[in-house]
């Protein structure tokens, strides 16, 4: 595109089309979607032993059990804050090396906000339920959905929605929907899930393995797409 070849009065349609394609190219060059998904996937999988070892279980003679997931409460808030910081730093460094500014700050703020929401909800539940009766069983579906949403795995999805919007990334938007659908509607991250005979810790680990695996699969997919685009 030289000055001579672009007379000031170009076709307005072509000018607008050029503007859009330049803006799109910049957005593509700023993205590090696979890094965000990789970090969150690793954080999810690393969190499983913390949940497993930090869980206190008290079973009564009538076979009912009470449990407290202290590991989740102690591991996830600092882990998520560190993860979002690491992702923001990676975005800024990568964009800078390509000669661009980055749009990571809103995502880091959204990540920190979702971490605060999750922590506040879990601390409130940990303080409330030991001294108050549990709600009537079975719990309404909206309650289960809300409970799954304020879990770390649900909050990761919310932060990904924000990232997809900031990046105007249709692929990430679709991936986030594909991630949130099982996390909110299928995977019982707040009840446990598994085969008969599995211990309580294993039943809680299973949904987290699926959630972490989904994030890592997404990271692999976005990494391949980024590599293909660079060629």
């Amino acid at each position: 595109m030289t000055t001579e070849s672009i007379a000031a009065g170009g076709d307005p349609r072509r000018l607008l089309s050029d503007i859009r394609s330049l803006a799109h190219q910049v957005r593509l060059d700023q993205r590090m979607t696979w890094v965000a998904l990789l970090v969150l996937g690793v954080v999810t999988l690393v969190g499983i032993p913390f949940d497993w070892l930090g869980m206190t279980v008290h079973c009564h003679p009538d076979t009912s059990c009470e449990f407290a997931r202290r590991g989740v409460l102690f591991y996830w808030p600092p882990a998520l804050l560190l993860a979002y910081t690491a992702i923001a730093v990676c975005y800024v460094r990568a964009a800078r090396s390509r000669g661009l500014g980055a749009r990571a700050l809103p995502y880091a703020i959204a990540g920190a906000a979702t971490t605060v929401v999750f922590t506040a909800a879990w601390v409130a539940a940990a303080l409330y339920f030991p001294h108050h009766p549990l709600p009537h069983q079975p719990l309404p579906y909206w309650w289960l959905l809300l409970d799954r949403l304020v879990s770390p795995w649900g909050m990761i999805g919310i932060a990904l929605v924000v990232l997809a919007r900031i990046e105007r990334n249709v692929g990430l938007r679709l991936f986030t929907l594909a991630y949130l659908a099982p996390v909110l509607l299928v995977l019982p991250t707040n009840e446990g899930w598994g085969l008969a005979g599995w211990g309580l810790q294993a039943r809680f680990a299973a949904p987290q393995v699926v959630s972490g695996a989904l994030l890592l699969l997404g990271a692999a997919g976005f990494f391949r797409a980024a590599r293909r685009r660079q060629r």
């Binding site: 672009i6 170009g10 000018l15 330049l22 803006a23 910049v26 957005r27 964009a95 980055a102």
Partner: peptide
């Protein structure tokens, strides 16, 4: 002017 419009567009998108 297409080049200057391009500069402004990229600077706007990239911060």
């Amino acid at each position: 002017q297409r080049a200057r419009l391009g500069i402004l567009t990229i600077a706007h998108e990239a911060h």
